[in-house]
Amino acid sequence: MSAVRTEVTVGAAVVAVAVGFLVYAGQVSGFSSSSAGYPVTASFRSIEGVTEGTDVRLAGVKIGSVTDITLNTQTFRADTELTIEQGIELPDDSAVVISSEGLLGGNFVEILPGGSPFNIEEGGELEDTQGAVSLVGLLMKFVTGGDEE
């Protein structure tokens, strides 16, 4: 009878650890985070390394996430929808840049606030965008010493 009780206790502990891990993984990945926020859009020439769920940061602090990416077949640009946390007001002339966390780090969307006295409204578009920079392209320019595009 003691062996059965031990097996049940160990099994319950394993299930509790698994549930805890799933909750933690959901919080880290942003899957379980609340979607309380307002949408804004931005259009990029290249959004390489960014997917739905990627962080949107301001001064290094996460203020939202990428919620949708679609290809605009008329302009051949990547149209994105960003959800920004409620209470964070962005000037309507803010810039949106795809930044990298380092040589081996992932990409994230960085907001560089502008100086406009007017804030972007829900559903508005941030027009000043800079797409992802290709590390391979930069290395090739350095290696070849080329100014060619």
Rank of each mutant, 00 (worst) to 15 (best):
V23I: 14
V23N: 02
V28R: 15
S29N: 12
G30C: 01
S32M: 08
S33C: 07
S34C: 08
G37S: 06
Y38I: 04
Y38W: 09
S43K: 06
F44Y: 01
R45K: 13
R45A: 12
I47M: 15
I47Q: 09
E48F: 11
E48C: 07
G49P: 06
V50I: 15
T51D: 14
E52K: 12
G53T: 01
G53L: 03
T54M: 12
T54V: 12
D55V: 07
V56P: 08
R57Y: 02
L58E: 04
L58P: 01
L58T: 00
A59W: 08
A59I: 02
K62N: 06
K62W: 01
G64W: 08
G64H: 11
G64N: 11
S65Q: 13
V66Q: 12
T67M: 06
D68L: 12
D68T: 09
I69E: 13
T70N: 11
L71H: 10
N72V: 11
T75G: 00
T75L: 00
R77S: 04
R77W: 01
A78D: 12
A78H: 13
D79F: 00
T80W: 02
E81G: 09
T83C: 00
I84K: 11
I84M: 10
E85G: 09
E85W: 07
Q86R: 15
Q86H: 11
G87D: 06
I88K: 14
L90P: 01
P91V: 04
D92R: 10
D93A: 01
A95M: 11
V96L: 10
V97Q: 09
V97P: 02
I98V: 15
S100L: 08
S100V: 05
S100M: 07
G102A: 08
G102P: 05
G105L: 04
G105F: 02
F108R: 15
I111D: 05
I111K: 11
P113E: 11
G114E: 07
G115I: 04
G115F: 01
S116Q: 05
